[in-house]
């Protein structure tokens, strides 16, 4: 089904943070051994609860954090060893990030025009009169029209949805191939959200962009993403086509997560599910499957080692001993 080559790929990507002082040093295992691919013209969702490591993953791919281990392969080449301003600048013109909060990701003392001109200058994408033209094109692309109405404005003069459109336009300014969107709609009002998701879907289709869509909202992943990966306590535990995964979840955690989402379309009341326990602290995650302590199907080997990837189909895999033939 997927014939194209991945544009961005994570291989065994791992990030540990050291916290605490000299006496009580702890290691927070924010991301462990994550491998996945992003494809041009595809949206891949990364879904999980807070603290599951999904934002860490996006920030690693944006090279805002240094990975503890693993590879970040862009267009077939590992970029983890690329350091220094010019190499990172090149990478960042290809891989752009959109943040959750459009109130803090734009600078209140600068105009919209300034926000869009800066990346054009830094990445030398346009000069002089061309610059204004390019800014107007960008505003057109994100449907802030007529552009001249928006360029002189300041962030506080725009609504949340308009601000997020500016943030998207800014990401597009450098003509990226990959956009890492970290909860891009969760701060916005319900009536505004679909406009932003539809805009990003249009960019995926028209500009063949690859998206990583980080979200806690499974229903929006079903709506917007082609593929969905589910994270729990630093591990990606299941991955597959969004429709398949949300309609027929395989991993016990995915099943738990889906049963917890309020869904009026499902009927008057959701079935009462027995949900015990809470997400473990990331500094206390042991060797085994992190979900073992809460899993209704737990077996002794679940506590010993993280299950390997079991492929269920060409596009679907799960990390759970229930599916491990060996």
């Amino acid at each position: 089904m997927i014939a194209a080559k991945p544009i961005l790929e994570a291989q065994g990507l791992t990030k540990h943070f050291r916290t605490g002082g000299a006496v009580s040093q702890r290691v927070v295992k924010a991301l462990q051994d994550a491998s996945f691919q992003l494809y041009p013209g595809k949206v891949t969702a990364l879904v999980g609860e807070s603290g599951s490591g999904k934002s860490t993953t996006a920030r690693l791919l944006a090279r805002l954090y240094e990975p503890t281990a693993g590879q970040i392969i862009y267009a077939g080449r590992d970029t983890v060893e690329d350091k220094g301003r010019s190499k990172l600048l090149k990478y960042r013109s290809e891989v752009q990030m959109i943040f959750q909060d459009p109130f803090s990701s734009l600078n209140p003392v600068h105009s919209i025009s300034y926000h869009l001109k800066r990346p054009l200058q830094i990445h030398r994408k346009a000069q002089g009169r061309q610059m204004t033209e390019k800014v107007h094109d960008l505003l057109h692309t994100v449907a802030l029209t007529p552009p001249a109405d928006y360029t002189p404005k300041y962030p506080h003069q725009l609504s949340g949805g308009q601000r997020q459109r500016v943030a998207i336009a800014r990401a597009l300014a450098v003509e990226p191939k990959v956009i890492l969107a970290d909860e891009p709609i969760s701060m916005l009002d319900v009536s505004i959200r679909m406009g932003i998701l539809n805009l990003m879907a249009k960019l995926r289709d028209e500009q063949n962009l690859a998206f990583l869509y980080v979200t806690h909202d499974l229903a929006s992943a079903r709506y917007f993403a082609d593929e969905t990966m589910v994270m729990y306590a630093g591990h990606i535990v299941e991955s597959g086509g969004s429709e398949e995964l949300t309609q027929d979840p395989q991993h016990p955690y995915t099943q738990l997560l889906l049963s917890a989402v309020p869904d009026p379309a499902r009927g008057l009341r959701t079935q009462e599910t027995e949900i015990a326990g809470e997400v473990p602290s990331l500094s206390e995650v042991g060797e085994g499957c992190p979900f073992a302590a809460r899993c209704p199907h737990v077996m002794s080997r679940c506590r010993e080692a993280m299950p390997p990837v079991t492929r269920l189909s060409e596009t679907r895999w799960v990390r759970c001993y229930l599916f491990d033939e060996a």
């Binding site: 009536s191 959200r193 679909m194 229903a219 929006s220 079903r222 709506y223 309609q247 379309a265 499902r266």
Partner: peptide, 9 residues
């Protein structure tokens, strides 16, 4: 304005 988990997409 909001997607659901079940029902048609």
């Amino acid at each position: 304005s909001f997607p659901t988990l079940s029902g048609p997409r």
